[in-house]
Design a binder for these strands. Structure first.
Length: 556
RNA sequence: GCUCCCGUCGUCUAGCGGUUUAGGACAUCGCCCUCUCACGGCGAAGAUCGCGGGUUCGAAUCCCGUCGGGAGUACCA
């Protein structure tokens, strides 16, 4: 008897499997796991539809994998298939990132598909925002909306004919059957039978006769279509969680097509994955409970020759917000654009998002996207939910800001300083000021608070309350002395300015540095906290600096 | 209710039977540097690895049980 060892995400296949696979791929079979012995068994379902496989059944006491994809390298095909509702959520982006990173790591392909089957909630604006966000982060794809490919269209709203054909084929093969019962009726039926209503559908319409159906139609009813699911346990090896088994009966025949003919997510998602040759599905853990139903659909698709293998699944952990709740769409922290607006760098946000469920190594949290791609394995993803920690995200962003070259940093600052930086002269000033603030920022959005004074006319500087010296601080005297010392200065450089000020205020007047430079800082910037004083004064120039000192001295 | 998932410092994590007196990071608190704020450096505090059994010479790591949290149980996606 062959034995297959199932490790986390890896199938160690026995010799001779290729021959068996051809059999598996044209049939539907389940793996039954004997919990006590750990033995696996293979068994056919719906074999009446597949006489060709009949002779092999008895020989199939061997343990084999139930037709899951065996792609491991460049043949891996991943997909990111958002539903364009609302503004991009960081959890969604994290999912996109992991798919992208693994595709790039393995050399496989990433497909971008739009699941816009909900006309009520989907919007073009949301789709455009997705493109905007993904483009900003540098997450690209090999196939799908925007770039085309052999399996288009890549918008579900344009694939109606494809689904219609699939529905017909699955009906013809007997996998789909008509269901006339309404939700309320099912509820009443469960109560009448002493079943918990939450157990849902009981598959009672599986064997309706033509006469039954005709009678129901005569009542004016239109049927939904349900998938006949296997009456066996269904298990799979989750790439991040290991082996997961759903017992028979824990998932029932589910609706895949509404009475109006519109297919549901539970149908179009696996159908498109099958048609597009997706080999691995990395998605949120909220979709985990629907996996046995998807696998059941896959079995049907394999049976009718549409799918070649069942994709391997990897369920990514939630991104949590406050408390024990999933980060809500209503929480501003969930919005990608909120973070961009505040001044996250793409590389900083990507780095932080990568840390939500994954780590590069035991002692490094800050890394580049290239380093992530080189190291990223889905099987290393940690299954526990991760809390979105803004403080840590900002800290990591600050590290990335410091890693930028000065000119790159200055360029990236511009969009956040549109109120101040308008001319080439402004840009030149910004370029010179950039090194002064680069290591004191975590968010690019902090730039205006730090640098506005450089772009403000001398007589418009506003003095913040906490920057005004106290009456006993000797500020007036300090300012007068400073003006004097500076007036005589020959070279207007930071070092000379510091020497003059230090000499007159600290050495001669005997002021503590804090009391000596504090009033000057306020005069120059209007704030208690500013970029380095002497360098700032150098940038401002002699005239402007002295004018500011005089103006503030008069106010004192 | 039923099914599934998850459970290491406040938070994110490393850990894959012995090199662990459980490592790193963020946050917190000291000190140093210092013209403010940062950056940087040094240091402190902080996790009996949810709990209880078992296996083993040895368990955060394996097994069983249990508790807690979360999700699903839709003709939403």
């Amino acid at each position: 008897m062959h034995k297959i060892t199932l490790n986390r995400g890896f199938h160690v296949l026995p010799q001779g499997l290729p021959e068996l696979l051809s059999f598996v791929f044209c049939s539907v079979q389940e793996r039954i796991i004997d919990r006590d012995s750990g033995a696996h068994d293979a068994r056919l379902l719906h074999h009446e539809h597949h006489p060709c496989t009949q002779p092999r059944i008895d020989a199939m006491t061997a343990t084999i994998s139930p037709g899951f994809s065996t792609a491991t390298g460049a043949d891996i095909r991943l997909r990111f298939c958002p539903s364009p509702t609302g503004t991009p959520h960081v959890g969604l982006i994290r999912t996109a990132l992991f798919n992208w990173a693994w595709a790039r790591h393995t050399g496989g392909k990433l497909i971008f598909r739009i699941e816009d089957t909900d006309a009520e909630r989907d919007s073009e604006e949301s789709y455009l925002q997705l493109l905007d966000g993904l483009g900003w982060l540098g997450i690209n794809w090999d196939e799908g909306e925007g770039v085309g490919g052999p399996h288009g269209p890549y918008r579900q709203s344009q694939r109606g004919e494809i689904y219609a054909e699939m529905i017909e084929r699955l009906k013809a093969s007997g996998h789909l059957y008509e269901s006339f019962v309404t939700g309320e009726e099912m509820d009443a039926r469960n109560r009448a039978n002493g079943r918990d209503p939450q157990q849902g559908y009981d598959n009672f319409e599986r064997d309706l006769t033509d006469a039954d159906r005709a009678a129901l139609r005569a009542e004016g009813r239109e049927p939904a279509l349900r998938l006949r699911v296997p009456d066996t346990d269904l298990s799979f090896v989750d790439l991040v969680r290991g082996e997961i088994t759903f017992p028979a009966g824990s998932f029932t025949d589910f609706v895949v097509v509404r009475p109006n003919g519109k297919p549901l997510y539970t149908f179009v998602n696996p159908v498109d994955d099958a048609l597009m040759g997706v080999t691995h599905v990395l998605r949120g853990e909220d979709l985990l409970p629907s996996t046995p139903r998807q696998i059941a659909l896959y079995h049907a698709l394999i049976e009718i020759g549409v799918a070649k293998a069942i994709p391997q699944f990897g369920h990514l952990p939630y991104v949590m917000g406050e408390g024990n709740k999933k980060l809500s769409k209503r929480d501003p922290e969930s919005s990608l654009f909120h973070h961009r607006d505040r001044g996250f760098l793409p590389e900083g946000l990507l780095n932080y998002l990568a840390l939500l469920g994954w780590s590069l190594s035991a002692d490094r949290d800050v890394f580049s996207i290239d380093e992530m791609v080189a190291a990223f394995e889905v099987t290393d993803v940690n299954p526990n939910p991760a809390r979105f920690d803004l403080k840590k995200a900002e800290s990591i962003n600050g590290d990335h800001i410091r890693m930028l070259s000065v000119s790159d940093f200055a360029t990236r600052l511009e969009p956040y300083l549109t109120d101040y930086v308008k001319t080439d002269a402004d840009r030149a000033l910004l370029r010179r000021a950039a090194p002064l603030v680069q290591e004191r920022m975590q968010l690019l959005g902090e730039a205006s608070g730090l640098l506005a004074f450089l772009f403000t006319p001398d007589n418009e500087i506003e003095y913040e309350a906490d920057a005004i010296p106290g009456p006993d601080d000797g500020a007036s005297m300090a300012l007068a002395v400073a003006i004097n010392a500076l007036d005589e200065l020959k070279e207007w450089t930071a070092t000379d300015i510091e020497a003059a000020l230090r000499g007159s205020l600290v050495d001669q007047l005997g002021l503590k540095p804090r009391l000596a430079f504090g009033p000057v800082r306020t005069a120059i910037s209007g704030r208690r906290i500013s970029p380095p004083l002497f360098e700032s004064m150098e940038l401002l120039g002699r005239d402007s600096s002295i004018a500011r000192l005089r103006r503030f001295a008069e106010r004192m």
